Simulated assay, not measured.
Amino acid sequence: MTTPIILASKSPFRAALLKNAGITFLAEAAEIDERAVEAALHDTGAAPEDIALVLAEAKALNVGGHHPDALVIGCDQTLSLDDEIFHKPADMEAARRHLLKLSGKTHNLNSAVVLVRGEETIWRHVGVARMTMRTLEPAFIGRHLASVGDIALSSVGAYQVEGEGLQLFEEIDGDYFTIVGLPMLPLLAELRKLGAIDG
């Protein structure tokens, strides 16, 4: 009998990546307070990649506690510009401020993925994409956000490179899956190694 796979997320983007790769899975959102978990790390000097890993692991362990026989995929993504970590913008004004800050600079998308079985973490990985945004005029940012609408509020950077957000960039160093928020190639390799998918 094959081990059930559960994605500890309701993200349609991450679910689509797994589905497109032919993975049979269930999706169940974790019930954790992400900001509280992050706040506990605030004074520890944790790097943005470490914060993404801790959040991904917390999500996977939360869902894994309800499904001890399943293999649970936890994932999280942080966006870091120098020492600042960005969160999903609360509204369009926050999205505008995000894009103004990122304009003309290179930021990192840190995408963590963790595998948990029951209460045991069996694998961790962080993929990093370096994203260089072109210099954006404030008027263009306003027009861009009006065009894409509320979808800008669904990601930490207030953009989607799989859509019109691609127009914001000058250079991207990293794979598509890491940018969307689930480093698929290392995940698939680990699932094959564990015998969870056909190798």
Score class of each variant (00 low, 15 high):
Lys193Asp: 09
Lys105Ala: 09
Gln77Asn: 02
Glu57Ala: 14
His98Asp: 08
Ile51Arg: 07
Met133Ile: 11
Glu120Asp: 11
Tyr176Ile: 09
Pro138Thr: 08
Arg143Ser: 14
Gly199Arg: 10
Ala152Trp: 09
Thr44Arg: 10
Leu185Gln: 12
Leu188His: 01
Gly65Leu: 08
Gly157Lys: 06
Asn108Lys: 12
Leu115Phe: 03
Gly149Lys: 04
Leu191Gln: 00
Leu71Met: 05
Val128Asp: 04
Ala27Cys: 12
Leu185Ser: 12
Glu93Met: 13
Arg124Trp: 03
Val113Leu: 04
Gly118Gln: 02
Ile51Lys: 03
Leu166Gln: 08
Ala27Tyr: 07
Ala46Trp: 00
Thr3Asn: 07
His66Trp: 10
Ser147Phe: 15
Ala112Leu: 09
Val128Cys: 10
Gly195His: 09
Asp91Tyr: 09
Ala139Asp: 14
Asp33Cys: 11
Leu194Pro: 02
Leu166Phe: 15
Arg96Asp: 08
Gly174Trp: 01
Glu171Leu: 14
Asp91Met: 08
Ile23Cys: 01
Ala16Arg: 14
Ile151Gln: 11
Glu84Cys: 09
Lys19Leu: 11
Gly165Thr: 06
His87Phe: 15
Glu162Gly: 07
Arg117Asp: 03
Asp175Cys: 05
Ala129Glu: 01
Thr121Arg: 12
Gly163Lys: 12
Ala36Met: 11
Val156Ser: 00
Glu28Leu: 15
Gly149Asn: 04
Ser111Val: 02
Leu187Thr: 02
Ala39His: 14
Arg96Met: 12
Ala189Thr: 12
Leu153Lys: 03
Leu79Asp: 00
Leu145Gln: 06
Ala90Val: 14
Trp123Gln: 00
Thr135Leu: 15
His125Gly: 03
Gly142Asp: 15
Lys88Asp: 06
Thr44Ser: 15
Thr121Glu: 10
Ile179Lys: 01
Glu171Trp: 13
His125Arg: 05
His87Pro: 05
Ile51Glu: 01
Arg117Phe: 12
Val116Trp: 07
